[in-house]
């Protein structure tokens, strides 16, 4: 669907995007992740035709951005960061204008505006000026703007930034609802969001792709290392370590700061293919310790993200 090759963008001497290769299949929800200034927005702006690449090429379906930008713009609905809309216009007038520019005819236009208003929850505010809307509502008008003529590809730049938790959930639901039949690229720096909405995650840092894959793959790729955390009452650290260290699969035991007095928080690092949990359970049952918590964790996306994007 979208084929990006050696995409590079320089702002003067500053290299914002550095030879990115990316293939996006039809129907995929792709999350573009990265710290601030990593080149997410620049990449999206080049795909949507707002910026021209310094070098490299973008092909969308059979069109090339260098030759056929107008056709590509017809395929893409784009919501820029923080939805910069015309402040003076009424919501209805704005959607009407966008629909006209996108070439919708009279009756189709009315029905699309109505269904977008319903999908994005704008029915009650069609007669208000955009300038007096809250940020969340503006974002929803922006979404309606992007989807007005039912484009095949949606590009959303930080669709939930600056919204409160309720609004985030609302926007996320809308994205998931439309994501069933559309190709969506969204950028974010909120990891839980990427994990919750995206099929595939691409992490970029300093203009380069540092990781690419599904959430599971990324977690797996970060190594087999897992951790088991335990909270015990009535046990001393040395005693516990002596008992648990011998179990197959446990490679290290660390003690964490207790939350309450009297409890012992242990963090066991697990290496190798063996699952130590059954033996851990049996060993603990034989003692008179009380087990409060027993939990295995894979590496979180947060850890992976930090490892990949932090300066050494």
């Amino acid at each position: 669907m979208i084929h990006v090759e050696k995409l590079t963008k320089y702002y003067g001497d500053l290299c914002a995007v550095d030879a990115i290769d990316l293939d996006i299949r039809k129907g995929e929800i792709l999350g573009l992740l990265g710290p601030n200034g990593a080149g997410k927005t620049t990449t999206l702006r080049m795909i949507t035709g707002y910026l021209e690449p310094t070098s490299g090429s973008i092909r969308i379906k059979e069109h090339d951005t260098a030759e056929d930008m107008l056709e590509i713009k017809k395929l893409i609905g784009y919501l820029p960061e923080s939805a910069p809309l015309y402040h003076g216009m009424l919501v209805y007038d704005y959607l009407d204008y966008v629909a006209k520019v996108r070439g919708l005819e009279k009756e189709e236009k009315e029905s699309r505006i109505r269904s977008m208003a319903e999908l994005c929850g704008l029915s009650g505010i069609m007669h208000k000026t955009v300038g007096e809307l809250s940020k969340g509502l503006k974002q929803r008008v922006g979404l309606a703007h992007a989807m007005i003529d039912d484009p095949e590809i949606l590009v959303l730049d930080e669709p939930t930034s600056g919204l409160d938790p309720n609004q985030i959930v609302e926007i996320r639901d809308i994205i998931r609802a439309i994501g069933r039949e559309k190709t969506i690229i969204l950028s974010t720096h909120i990891l839980s969001e990427a994990e919750a909405t995206c099929d595939r995650i691409v992490i970029i840092d300093k203009g380069k792709i540092v990781a690419d894959g599904s959430t599971e793959m990324l977690k797996m790729g970060a190594g087999q290392e897992k951790t088991v955390s335990l909270v015990l009452v009535g046990a001393g650290f040395d005693e516990a370590r002596q008992k648990l260290e011998t179990i197959r699969g446990v490679s290290r035991i660390d003690c964490e700061e207790p939350h309450h007095e009297g409890e012992l928080r242990l963090l066991l690092t697990v290496a190798g293919p063996d699952d130590p949990r059954p033996s851990l359970y049996h060993t603990i049952r034989e003692t008179d310790w009380t087990l409060l918590e027993f939990r295995q964790e894979g590496k979180s996306l947060e850890t992976i993200f930090r490892e990949l994007t932090q300066e050494d």
Binding site: R45, G49, L70, Y78, P80, P84, Y86, V101
Partner: peptide, 14 residues
């Protein structure tokens, strides 16, 4: 100034 130029130029207009 308000950034709506980005929205305008990503509509199918030259």
């Amino acid at each position: 100034n308000i950034g709506s130029y980005e929205m305008l130029m990503t509509l199918p207009v030259s």
